[in-house]
Write a protein that binds this DNA or RNA. Structure first.
Length: 267
DNA sequence: AACGTTTACAACCGCCCGGCT
DNA sequence: TAGCCGGGCGGTTGTAAACGT
């Protein structure tokens, strides 16, 4: 089923609202309320689609909207809520009276995310000064051990695939339903420190759901498609210091090797 | 002063969901 | 039960203002 567009494009205005339009919308809603957004613009004498009217009202014209800069307390609240709720802006907005989801989303993307990223980077750098040692205990067996927690942090890679590691380096997730054989994985020598710059583009957006996903790498895994979480456990048998200058080489190596063993179904 | 870049934010778009018929 | 519709949501874009060179 193809959905009809929310409004007829012909003859309807787009772009910034004029004070006159604001006035029309405000006075109409104050008089009649907004029973039906689709019908509203016609009744109010606006050349806008209902969706546009709704957005304008909710995000800008509603009388109880608190305008102006966010207080530091509000910002802290957003950060805390974002940790637990992720990008559920409307849910976050519900906890901040007078603030709209759009406003919160904007302040997050333009301000708070960068601030957290900077803080994260400075933490990474300080940790990087003490390089983690990664040991391989056994060539055939399974678990990476480190003398101290690795600080690299694989995060969202794209909408369908993600790699995540936590401080104890436990897990990797790639998409929804693809498994990857990494038979050559024993040649992987070390897990270098990856700082935030590795993921500099696009901007890192760590959500709780992502950060909570587990990543393990196992040597045998069923191949499935479309993408799914895959788990792969691999092992290291000798102790190494990081031999790559940065994480890019390391992960490029992993990806090029694992790509050879990815089996995709025919469509 | 002119120009390029970055930032902030309003607005749009497409998708999803629930209610109704 | 399928299709339609309205409302809501999150992601993305457009653009003016601010800032840097």
């Amino acid at each position: 089923m193809v959905r009809a567009p929310c409004c007829e494009k012909m003859g309807l205005k787009k772009g910034p609202w004029t004070p006159e339009e604001d006035q029309l919308l405000t006075s109409y809603i104050q008089k009649h309320g907004h029973g039906n957004w689709r019908a509203l613009p016609k009744q109010a004498g606006l050349l806008r689609c209902g969706k546009s009217c709704r957005l304008r009202w909710i995000n800008y014209l509603k009388p109880d909207i608190k305008r102006g800069n966010f207080t530091s307390q509000e910002e802290e609240t957003i950060i805390e809520l974002h940790e637990t709720l992720g990008n559920r802006w409307s849910a976050i907005a519900a906890k901040l009276p007078g603030r709209t989801d759009n406003e919160i989303k904007n302040v997050w993307h333009t301000n708070l995310k960068k601030r957290l990223l900077k803080a994260d980077q400075s933490n990474s750098n300080s940790r990087r000064a003490t390089k983690p040692r990664i040991k391989r205990s056994d060539s055939n067996s399974s678990i990476i051990t480190q003398s101290e927690p690795a600080n690299f942090s694989l995060r969202e890679m794209d909408s369908t695939s993600a790699c995540t590691t936590s401080s104890d380096f436990s897990s990797v997730t790639v998409g929804d339903s693809k498994t990857i054989k990494c038979e050559d994985i024993e040649s992987l020598e070390t897990m270098p420190v990856i700082d935030e710059s590795f993921w500099s583009e696009p901007a890192i957006d760590e959500t709780p759901s992502m950060s909570s996903q587990s990543m393990t790498i196992s040597t045998e895994m069923p191949l499935q498609y479309p993408f799914t979480n895959y788990e792969e456990t691999f092992q290291q048998s000798h102790a190494y210091d990081s031999s790559f200058d940065d994480g890019m080489d390391f992960w490029y190596d992993i990806l090029t090797r694992t790509a050879d063993s990815i089996e995709l179904p025919e469509f």
